[in-house]
Design a protein around this nucleic acid. Structure first.
Lengths: 193, 193
DNA sequence: ATAGAATCGGAGAGATCCCTCCGGTTGCCG
DNA sequence: CGGCAACCGGAGGGATCTCTCCGATTCTAT
């Protein structure tokens, strides 16, 4: 325990290259095939024996986390950056659309957000809590500004986001013209009538 | 091939009872656990050996189909029945909400509709074609009546339906007050402004 | 160049899963 | 109630998946 990555002796040059290659291949594999892809398959695609890959990532889940965690954290960072924007409605809807747009191109990311089940995004994780908190601030500000239906709660928006990913991913796969996120955002707006 | 169910010698009484029980248990298991549940597990829950269950349903997929096909067909029948309703907008949104409401209580049904991947609902299946056709009629009539955004295509609505299921299922699981279907339906309405 | 440490590769253990096979059991008809 | 067809049960074959182990290989420091 406590393998101190920052102070540990640097990896041998070949190991470093190989580690990088595994991450690269895993990234592509997860984006196109989703969380269900097998560890063996990733090793095969990268051209390594499974033992080699396990040397770098102790567990299937650890590998997936290494690939996906950063992406998720960026969503949280984006939300925080927008928490003080001058137009709360624009900030909220912009963030929502950005997340849908970015994630819908990545199968594994979608599954993680949709299911709340992937690595490092389980119920109660720091990441999951931060995500909900950041979203909550955006939402409340937008609601106070009258841009979003007042009866929507954070969990509602989270679920709508998940649903929107499901829809947008498929729409994107078939080259659809209408943005599903656009439709859902319209549904979340305060009813003018 | 062509095991003629209607004219074949009726099942022995015990076999009939057992078959019924398997269907019942499978229904519950699929509703709560989804398509990923294993054949062995269903046999175990029903209290039968796997051989017994395989006697009645030659394949995992055949069992799932026996449980789920009827439900799917009802959605198509509902859509057809509403194709001549006097208020096309009301018919369209009513059907949409009904499907979401009914399916969101059943994990396997959701996965089937969402993924387009389950038994008997694959791309090109008669059921899938009929489903799309029935939905298409409802949509076009609603659009002509000015109740639904004119730029939405059948595929768009199908994807929104899938997404709505993802959202509604989770909202229901946590006892949410706001209906996700309501929000999405609002998004599909023609913009008054 | 060479010793020694770090790394690689892949066979295989252990867990599931789908499905088959066949000996033992049970219900049905005369 | 006797005999046979139909039915049940579960061991196990073949696949696949995660992860371990250790001999063979490759890199690096001297």
């Amino acid at each position: 325990m406590g393998d101190d990555h920052s102070t540990a002796r640097p990896l041998r040059a070949d190991a470093r290259r190989n580690r990088e290659r595994v991450l690269q291949i895993a990234q592509e594999a997860l984006a196109s095939d989703g969380l269900a892809i097998s560890f063996d398959e990733i090793a095969r695609r990268a051209g390594f024996g499974v033992g080699t890959v396990y040397r770098h990532f102790p567990t299937r889940e650890a590998l997936f986390e290494a690939v996906l965690l950063g992406r998720m954290e960026r969503f949280v960072a984006d939300a925080r950056a927008l928490a003080t924007a001058e137009d709360p409605g624009r900030a909220f809807f912009g963030w929502f659309r950005t997340v849908v747009e970015q994630a819908s191109a990545n199968q594994a990311l979608c599954e993680m957000l949709e299911g709340g089940t992937g690595p490092a995004f389980r119920r109660g994780t720091t990441l999951e809590t931060d995500f909900a908190a950041a979203l909550s601030r955006l939402l409340q500000r937008a609601q106070r500004a009258g841009a979003v239906r007042g009866d929507l709660r954070t969990e509602d928006v989270q679920d709508l986001l998940r649903g929107c990913l499901t829809a947008e991913r498929r729409a994107r796969a078939r080259g659809g013209k209408v943005s599903m996120a656009e439709v859902v955002c319209d549904g979340m707006r305060s009813h003018p009538r």
